[in-house]
Nucleic acid binder design. Sequence first.
DNA 1: CCAAAAGTGTTCGCCGTACACCCATGA
DNA 2: TCATGGGTGTACGGCGAACACTTTTGG
Lengths: 237, 237
Amino acid sequence: MTPRKSHVELYKKHHKHFIAIDCIIFGFDEGELKLLLIKRNFEPAKGQWSLMGGFLDENESLDEAGYRILYNLTGLKDIYMSQLHSHGEVNRDPGARVISISYFALINIQNHDEELVKENDAHWRPISKIPPLIFDHRHMVDLALEQLRKEAKIKPVGFELLPSKFTLPQLQSLYEAIYSKTLDKRNFRKNILSMGMLEKLDEKEKENSKKGAFYYRFNEDKYKELTARGFYFNIAI
Amino acid sequence: MTPRKSHVELYKKHHKHFIAIDCIIFGFDEGELKLLLIKRNFEPAKGQWSLMGGFLDENESLDEAGYRILYNLTGLKDIYMSQLHSHGEVNRDPGARVISISYFALINIQNHDEELVKENDAHWRPISKIPPLIFDHRHMVDLALEQLRKEAKIKPVGFELLPSKFTLPQLQSLYEAIYSKTLDKRNFRKNILSMGMLEKLDEKEKENSKKGAFYYRFNEDKYKELTARGFYFNIAI
DNA sequence: CCAAAAGTGTTCGCCGTACACCCATGA
DNA sequence: TCATGGGTGTACGGCGAACACTTTTGG
């Protein structure tokens, strides 16, 4: 007899609940922070906009469910993702009592599987133009944005939203999008370069200017080494 | 027919889960940060130490469940409490698949109902001497401490752990306990008083010294007013 | 009168912030 | 050659950090 069965009677008297996972998926493109949203072609709330979600299965952890749902929509694995909050208002979902656990993910918008996204009727929407969302999904989005703004200051999470090679103007533009604020070029560069975790490449990006801007790469190992020495990532905003 | 029934069939195919709420309850006494822990006189894991917990009922929100559990143990309402994290490893509870949502609470250790606490076989334990805990409760405690340390720097949550009248040496001792660090008396006072949210009372506390230390009170209204003007609470640690 | 805790100001260095001009190049 | 975006350095003020002596009073 497994230990799992030994006390099952003690739990039996309690209620069980549906548990959903909803994903707030951020991307960055054309100088704007964007969210991947679903135009629902299924019930409930068919025809309305919502976050990508799904139900927690019997034999998967919460994190596994989050990654599964993200993978099913984007074809991406090994993505920066973290749990945000659990939402348990009794009537948050008019279809049934469902507890939802929100996750937020940062992805490089170039990498996702466009076919899968199309199949799911998912669309990138700039955060300045988010359509009305079902249930409490808008609240989840607001929490996620708040969290992103907290984290981007003190952890190198911004790089998750960019290609592995990026230019400093791109990086600055990303931070400006996250904080809806223009930043001083000289101060921004001084700040980020002084941390010593960016590698300058020999190559230039020439799409956006005649002069061209040097590519940089985030050096994960360097960052870990610095962290181990008591260093803290910090961008002045 | 209520909308609640309209889509219930769509959900039916999914699994339901037990949801538990576990509370990390902090108090401050004798210069030490303490946790309220249960010596379990019930199954499962009878005789072992754990956090206070309970199951989510059918018609209560997560927050309501958290407050119910806290109230049942301490007799306290209107307590500072916030959701921490959801824990969903498949085998985290060997008795059954249970998703647990942790909450952390800050209480004034003088105010709790000692009878109730005794009935539940609950005990205050300094954070430096936490006994082994069941399941992943130790992990929850570690997360809560981390969260407390983050919050106490930037929000006036420390006062929740003190009586409404307190002295500056008491307050400093609290911060020293939270961060396991001795602080400079002059800098600490300058810092906290310059924010202008503490009211000095005419009364002195004379238990701890011959000279006596003036009582202060946290002025909630003042704090809200300052916050509305764009002020941010900040203690240099 | 003395031990023990409360209370009080100043100096220094660094970091965040403001700010303006030259460079490279494709059209 | 000129328009466009990329790239660079310096000066100032404020805040966090370090630091030592006086005051009060019960025993």
